[in-house]
Write a protein that binds this DNA or RNA. Sequence first.
DNA 1: TGCTTTATGTTCTACGGCAGAACAAATCCG
DNA 2: CGGATTTGTTCTGCCGTAGAACATAAAGCA
Lengths: 394, 394
Amino acid sequence: MRTTEQTGARQSTLRSSNLALVLRTVCAADGPLSRADVAARTGTTRATAARLVDELVAGGLLDEGERLAPPRRGRPATPLLPGARIGALGLQVDAGLLAARVLDLRGRAVAEHVEDADLVGSDPARTLARLGGLTTALLDGPAGELRLAGAGLALPGLVDGEVLLRAPNLGWSDVPAVDLLAAHLPGGLRPVLGNEADLAARTVAEAAPGRPGPLRDFLYVSGQIGIGGAAVLGGRVLTGSAGWAGEVGHVCVDPDGPTCRCGSTGCLEQYAGRHALLAAAGLPRGTPPAEVVARAGDADVQRALDAAAGALGVALAGVLNVLDLPAVVLGGHLAALAEPLRPRLEELLGRRVLSARWRRPVVEAVPGTPAAGATGAALRALDGVLDDPVRWVP
Amino acid sequence: MRTTEQTGARQSTLRSSNLALVLRTVCAADGPLSRADVAARTGTTRATAARLVDELVAGGLLDEGERLAPPRRGRPATPLLPGARIGALGLQVDAGLLAARVLDLRGRAVAEHVEDADLVGSDPARTLARLGGLTTALLDGPAGELRLAGAGLALPGLVDGEVLLRAPNLGWSDVPAVDLLAAHLPGGLRPVLGNEADLAARTVAEAAPGRPGPLRDFLYVSGQIGIGGAAVLGGRVLTGSAGWAGEVGHVCVDPDGPTCRCGSTGCLEQYAGRHALLAAAGLPRGTPPAEVVARAGDADVQRALDAAAGALGVALAGVLNVLDLPAVVLGGHLAALAEPLRPRLEELLGRRVLSARWRRPVVEAVPGTPAAGATGAALRALDGVLDDPVRWVP
DNA sequence: TGCTTTATGTTCTACGGCAGAACAAATCCG
DNA sequence: CGGATTTGTTCTGCCGTAGAACATAAAGCA
């Protein structure tokens, strides 16, 4: 019996590999490419590139656009774009929302439904049934005409295979999330489960399926009730050995600090989580971040912001020292609070990151689209198309 | 002009890829393989596997061993082993030693020279000249008969290309280490520079070139004057975006703690670094770890050990939360102190690592060979052979 | 002791997918 | 309107693998 070692390359894998390369080359490009462009960028001959492109066009993974007048002499090129009739479904449940979104291979949201909901302490079976219902409705529209390559579900907390082990934000434990949801989805769809912060970080790393975003190496810090995070290196999210990486909210800032619901003490989210920050500022839980920014000068509010910035600075500096990342990306409420947080945060990173003298860490705020986790889940579902297009061509 | 995108696969890359696969398959095996075994493990036919093996044997990357009586009927197999006449040179400078070591493709130290030296505050040019001298002497012996695939140099601190930016342990800054060393090496050897903890961690992840060690996912904590570290995921060291990852010694344990020479406060190495621990225990700097263990019951010594264990627990728990690693490997003096450190360290990891309920982190002590960084540097130099054997066959 | 069985290694032929050259098409420019 | 240029298509040859057939070298059995 073949062991788990890699299988030798052969003519068929040659073709598969080159189909994937051609598809990725077109997807990664800033604008349409021609067959000649593809040949140039992949180091293949025009004959080979053309043959591979023809297969991808036949399979709907690439589309040919309207031929334009060339900018100079020569036969006009046929523009090639990622296919618009293949897509994936991304779903998300978070403490405050349900979302479903269909992305096509160009990265456009062909259809979406995002609704506010207070889901803390909700019954998982009912919540996931509700998500299934709104997804079914969504797929009855124009999105239903796309060929869906797969689906993904973004949840907060620790996920293991098809089970959500623990989501403190939702108050859920040991939930067979994929089974509960799939029972309410059409067409036998079984979403792949993933952590919300990991998937949201992907939307920063990737502008569209297979196309790099502006940052390739960064620490994404997702500010919600708690704080999640994800490290991205070379455009790829570090998920860790069991998929449980990224929990920057539970990095200890002060061992003698407040007790966290995780059982530890002095965790970052006890200072910079939304609830913790508002409590320290003496503001009600529903206060929007913009109002916190507006009242930044008030003594209590300012002290809470300073404490949050200080805690972020201490915790994130340690993470950057271990991971060697040049940037921090703030998401969620932390993105909205970036202006008052940034000065002290950057000062502490500059002082505490060992390599700051040579490369000073930067802090970006990326509020992102609502339900970025759903977008990230759809991006991940499209990986199968980009990695192995041979399965999608005739 | 070709951009940096990947080049399409073709017949020639087919061959290269399969040569690499066959070589890695033999190197990864626990014992010798036959051509038939290689075919089975790589999913190729016996004809193809045999042809590829013949090329690697001709190039000296594989050796044929003595044919043994088969355990059952059938033509006896010809055993294949990694080549014994190809090797790499690994060099290391640390605060207390100079080392040179030649490894062959089976992972054996064909020749080595390790000498104690007090190099803190030494002149880099003289120290590296000295290392060059003892290396030249080493290569005049039997090791000189090996075909050297490359060389590597392990140094503590931050390295950038061929320059050592900062090594607090040595007191060196902005040292063009490769230039200084290469001037004293024979045969135009130019070692590849790397961080000591990263390279030492490789010797835990890899039992021999291309052969996995017992642990594939772990945090290596290197206890020296300071504390270095490296995260290993799937057998690969995480080096970060600029190669400066792994600085667990500068994760903050207590923001109000002692000032560190890095400019920060409350760094882990202020509690668990060798000098810091001995000072807290009221013992002279040269006290060997075994004596510290022997006096573990003394009030001052015990308090220092508890503080070190506590600091390690707080800092490493945060790192494990972010990286999702199941094990901590203690090296250097921390390996020797594992017995008194472990109970409290494991208790804190169990409490502070979010996923500990599902997978409790373990602590291993791996003292390792002296100058493990030199071995790791040689392992890395052999990567070029394993990854691209076609350059080494006729 | 000789034949059978079994497993490994070698030789030979066919095929898939790519390179490279030649040719065709579709423009712009003078 | 013909030449120049670029893109796309067609055709042929080659490389490296698969697969079958054959050869070799043993152990086991009668």
